[in-house]
Nucleic acid binder design. Structure first.
Lengths: 334, 334
DNA sequence: CTGAAAGCGCTAACAT
DNA sequence: ATGTTAGCGCTTTCAG
């Protein structure tokens, strides 16, 4: 790598002159500036990021902690984060907590050594389960801001980006009720997460608010067992089910495929709406009608919040919770 | 953040003494070392990463360039990379090329300013299409090593990690032939990638090597149109198809679902084998029999190669190509 | 055994 | 308009 010193030597000027010239300082004469810039360009000079960070005490890097990169929702959020961060001149360092509180703590610790200016993260499943959030507050105490998305925690003071999970599920459930569905089941493999609970509440509320007569029917999928078998059990045990709301990424698609195998016609006999993204929705015939969570936008909004926070553009005593709108995308299964 | 200087002041010793003590130098007396370490622990001292990088001219950070994070294969590789990198004390900075050569170049450029010690990447689709690889060589010229995985390029000299795509597809095709399948189609939405071509070759070779009478039957899915429709067309036009080899992540699952809709029994009338990962394989009934690419292992191997290269443990004049073994996982569709 | 000093690459206050 | 100097936090050589 070529350095300022190298350039200075070659031109017979001082390092600070070169630095100023490249930073468009008005102190430097037109001619010198030209010569310096030309040579810098010729040698493809790039300021050393580490030196810059050390000097300015800011890394222009965002730490991103993702619970599970195999979840398409998170993958899409990451995509949005990366896009927006690059646009604003930030790099991202990605850590995968793999739903473990230990890894989450570790990542936070590790990157709090001057590696990043701030964090964007979704809380791991285990962390929500054991309700232990000290590590976030410790990070904040070090003056490293955190933006939480999707999996957020009520009583932690930080900027947040979420969708209105309850409202979205309520709307989806209502849509089925409006289609005169009489027995609507709710399927979830994320009932231990806050978002899972919110979605369940949305489902329950929709039933209450309508003149719907049946009791709620909820299948909580056990991740340790075959999900297809569990869904098949539900459909066999309750042959009058004519509607399904799926709270997670894959259950909706799976439900359609299992139902078809049982000879149930979709959407004639059974309507299904899920939280899947388009690619997963395509993996059934008919395709799954789904709730679009606008994951990319969640990512982009998170970056903007964090960067504004870092630039002190936000009120230091007030944190905001941004709610990203969702839409139902009609793909034929409802 | 607490610094060496802070610790030194509090203890009334010099910065260098503190530094040496914390680095277990034999120059420092037992007693002093104890005191220093105790205080460092008390204040939870962590050496500033940027200062360390600047000083040592190594960042302990790996740049990772992924073409498409929504592809589960890449997501899994990333997971493996992250795991192994963390284990070895490296951070990863992730860039998503989004299959674009421009973004790929940009990322390479951007991170070559002392942000990373080396790269792990899979070549973007566009890059393979236009066959332009100068940017990789430029990076290497700057003494920044590259490890390529999955999407590699024959004539670029660097360490590589791949699976034997041709062999794997050949074996899968043979498996269907051994089951007395008479008309086996090959479906791919990645025929523009090298790996796609290799898989096609594997399919063709398997047919040639057996006493299989039919001509190859190949469907190249047009990404701009509905994939389900294209697969349905294939099955309708060739009602005697009794076997399918799917070259990409989703076509196999999709083929099963489309076939079922057409009243075709799986695997009685039609056997399907694909390159999907387990979660996608679960999205059909029966589940898709698939070729396990061991994505995580690819990631881990890549990290190990790169780190060994960085530590000069590898012969500088010789680059290796590592082939990760694949397995067919029988899920019921073959 | 401990400390002073130089230097990694850069910026910026302060001379000249 | 240009140069000198100090310093970001750290390691390491060299003196003491």
């Amino acid at each position: 790598m070529i350095t300022l010193k190298d350039l200075a030597q070659k031109l017979g000027v001082s390092v600070s002159t070169v630095s100023k010239a490249l930073n468009d300082s008005s102190e430097i004469s037109e001619g010198t500036a030209q010569r310096i810039k030309a040579l810098a360009k010729y040698y493809n000079y790039q300021p050393n990021r580490m030196a810059l960070s050390l000097k300015k005490n800011q890394t222009k890097t965002i730490g991103v902690i993702i619970p599970n990169i195999l979840n398409r929702f998170f993958a899409k959020v990451l995509f949005g984060i990366q896009e927006e961060a690059t646009k604003l001149g930030y790099n991202i360092i990605v850590c995968l907590s793999n739903e473990s509180i230990e890894k989450e703590k570790e990542s936070l610790q590790l990157l709090s050594n001057g590696s990043v200016d701030g964090f964007i993260l979704a809380i791991s499943e285990e962390t929500q389960l054991v309700s232990e959030f000290d590590h976030f507050q410790e990070t904040q105490k070090k003056d490293i801001p955190i933006v939480m998305f999707d999996r957020v925690q009520e009583n932690i003071e930080c900027d947040k980006v979420i969708i209105d999970d309850q409202e979205a599920t309520l709307k989806a459930t209502k849509a089925l009720i409006d289609k005169h569905r009489k027995k609507i089941a709710f399927i979830s493999n994320i009932d231990n997460l806050n978002v899972g609970k919110l979605r369940e509440t949305g489902y329950r509320k929709a039933l209450q608010l309508s003149n719907y007569t049946e009791a709620p029917l909820i299948l909580k999928i056990d991740g340790n067992k075959d999900a297809q078998v569990q869904i098949k059990g539900l459909l066999k045990d309750n042959s009058s089910i004519d509607g399904i709301i799926a709270a997670d990424n894959v259950s909706g698609t799976m439900a359609i495929n299992v139902a078809i195998q049982l000879g149930i016609k979709i959407p004639d006999h059974l309507s299904v709406i899920g939280f899947a993204d388009q690619a997963i929705s395509n993996l059934s015939v008919p395709k799954l009608t789904s709730i679009n969570q606008n994951a990319e936008e969640i990512g982009k909004t998170s970056v903007n919040l964090l960067v504004n926070r870092l630039k002190n553009k936000l009120d230091p005593d007030h944190f905001s919770t941004n709610i990203i709108a969702t839409q139902i995308i009609n793909n034929g299964s409802d």
